[in-house]
Simulated assay, not measured.
Amino acid sequence: MKLVTFTHSGHTRIGKVEGDQIIDLSIAQPSLPQDMLSLLQQGGAAMDKVRDAKALPEAVLALADVKLEAPVQNPSKYLAIGMNYRDHVEESARKGIKTPETQIWFNKQVSCVTGPFDPVEMPRISEMLDYEVELCVVIGKTCKDVSIEDAPSVIAGYMVANDVSVRDIQWASPTWTLGKSFDTHGPVGPWLVTADEISNPHNLHMLLTVNGEERQNNTTSLMVYNIYQQIAHLTQIMTLQPGDLIATGTPMGVAAGMNPPKYLKVGDVIRAEIEGVGVIENKVVAK
């Protein structure tokens, strides 16, 4: 299934995408919550009701007539792994960035989360604005100390993410969090594709363009630590909750890795696409 958070006629709620239409779950299944986080918290029984939702005439909206929002608007955590694609590690090493010896994690503060087609703001304090196409995992169950083998069972689904980064602010701090957490610098979507729709998340084509120019073009098969290893590692340390987001790394081609660097400018349009998951597109605007 493709699950969305959308706004129509001034009201925001959740729905299921079928073709070019949305089934408004507030009408088709009125007993369900009207926000994605609460839906995920209710677990499998609620998801079964979503699957059973019928395209009643009064519950159907054209996809073109709604505004798609971030599918999960208020996650408790947004975690991201750095330097997790082999070619990106090599690209960064050429810039003098040390190759990590273990999984490197940072927070994107949840206030950065924004919609799949919303604008990305150019900071006033930096011109080193960069992009990173990433497969984003959405956690579906409260979980701790999850084994690698059991990790698939705690995944609700997947989204496209652009880990927008302000490089000079990022590099000024060993934690990276500040440079990754500017408001509007966490576009995700366009929908949450449930895990059963993605047979192998480690073999998906990824593409990012800026104004139609190809910048990143690779596959998720190049992850150093796969998704299940990431979840196992994180849950040794912390409890993950339904709706938590995990950005799983980016391949080579980021602006900072180019010679010379080719950072984003006001007016640029960034399009990020992942096979089987979807497309998000964001325009850089002045703050």
Rank of each mutant, 00 (worst) to 15 (best):
L40A: 03
L245V: 03
I97N: 06
S181D: 08
D183R: 00
P242I: 06
E134S: 00
L61P: 01
H233L: 10
G189D: 00
L207G: 06
L40I: 03
L79G: 02
A256C: 15
H185P: 09
V138L: 04
G278Q: 05
K54W: 15
D20C: 09
D24Y: 06
S221I: 14
I237R: 12
Q216P: 09
I270T: 14
I125H: 11
L192P: 02
F6L: 02
S153T: 15
E121A: 14
W191F: 14
L40P: 01
M1Y: 05
V138K: 01
R167Q: 07
N74Y: 06
V89P: 00
I169N: 08
K265W: 05
Y263V: 04
M223R: 04
E132F: 00
T248E: 01
L245E: 02
T114I: 05
I125Y: 13
E273G: 10
M252N: 14
K108P: 04
T99F: 03
G179Y: 03
G115C: 03
E127H: 03
A232C: 07
Y131S: 07
E127C: 02
Q216H: 11
L264F: 10
M83S: 12
A151Q: 06
S38W: 09
L68R: 07
L3T: 06
Q230Y: 10
T209L: 07
I22A: 12
V137Y: 09
A232M: 04
G157W: 01
V60W: 13
R215A: 00
G115Y: 02
L264R: 04
Q29A: 13
K262M: 12
A232P: 01
V137E: 05
G189C: 00
L240T: 10
Q42R: 12
M258L: 15
H88K: 02
H233R: 11
H8R: 07
P174C: 09
T184K: 12
L207A: 09
P100W: 09
M252Q: 15
M206T: 08
A256Y: 15
A151H: 07
G43N: 04
I280C: 01
G276M: 03
A46I: 13
L222H: 07
A195R: 11
D183G: 06
E69N: 15
M122P: 01
F182L: 12
L204R: 10
T248A: 04
V17Y: 10
L79D: 01
E18A: 10
W105A: 02
E134N: 05
W191D: 11
V277N: 04
G179F: 08
G10C: 04
D150N: 08
E121R: 14
W176Q: 12
C143R: 00
M223H: 02
Q73I: 05
R94W: 09
I125L: 11
K283T: 15
G189I: 03
M252T: 15
K262Y: 06
Q42N: 11
A161Y: 11
V60N: 09
S111A: 11
T209I: 10
F6D: 01
I280K: 03
K2V: 03
D145S: 11
R124T: 12
K67M: 15
V166T: 11
T209Y: 07
M206G: 05
D163P: 07
R215I: 01
T99H: 04
A53G: 15
T220W: 12
G115L: 02
Q216L: 11
A255I: 08
D168H: 09
P242S: 03
E127D: 08
M159R: 00
I155M: 02
E69T: 13
P152S: 10
A53F: 15
